[in-house]
């Protein structure tokens, strides 16, 4: 016969840890029904340059362009994206207090760790290109999201090509 100790302590998890069940929201019985739908609001007007504050994050995203794309398992900046990155570099030099982070992303066709590494390569390739165009290296950070932040989820080249991307995000110093 074997006698096991009474405590069997695989350390009880700390009581502070939150159980998932707690996230349920109880709906109050007295909540009034939602109001009937009113006429749909007019669609937002297409952004125009004049409506966007120069030097703002939106200015970079809408008027300059924030996203470049990559070939499968590649991380070199495509010739077709160099003009866009040139504009980003010029914009960054025009607004020298702005700091940015380049996000590197991959499509779903790679293992989790490999795609984290691949995303880092892509983000860094964008950063290097901006630096080669005169942006000071200290203003540009990089982060890889691997395949964890897709912008579309179908398993075809049309979607994969959108997900293989580098995105320049303003993180500080912009007009707002």
């Amino acid at each position: 016969m074997i006698r096991f100790s009474s405590s069997l302590k695989f350390s009880a998890l700390s009581a502070a840890l939150v159980l998932g069940a707690c996230t349920h929201k109880q709906e109050a019985v007295t909540t009034p029904p939602p109001p009937p739908p009113v006429a749909a609001p007019a669609p937002a007007p297409a952004p125009v340059a004049s409506g966007i504050l120069p030097g703002s994050a939106e200015d970079l995203r809408v008027n300059v362009g924030d996203t470049v794309h990559f070939t499968l398992d590649q991380y070199n900046v495509e010739e077709s994206d160099k003009a866009l990155l040139g504009r980003q570099a010029a914009w960054l030099q025009k607004y020298p207090s702005v700091r940015v982070t380049i996000e590197g992303h991959a499509d779903e066709r790679g293992t989790r760790e490999y795609n984290l590494a691949l995303g880092a390569r892509r983000a860094n390739a964008v950063k290097e290109y901006l630096v080669s165009q005169g942006v000071s290296t200290g203003r540009v950070e990089t982060v890889s999201y691997g395949k964890e932040r897709p912008i579309c989820t179908t398993s075809d080249e049309g979607c994969w090509s959108q997900n293989r991307r580098g995105v320049t995000i303003v993180t500080g110093g912009a007009n707002s």
């Binding site: 016969m1 096991f4 069997l8």
Partner: peptide, 10 residues
């Protein structure tokens, strides 16, 4: 043949 002692929640 084995015997175990433990707290009920275990």
């Amino acid at each position: 043949g084995l015997q175990f002692f433990t707290t009920p929640e275990n």
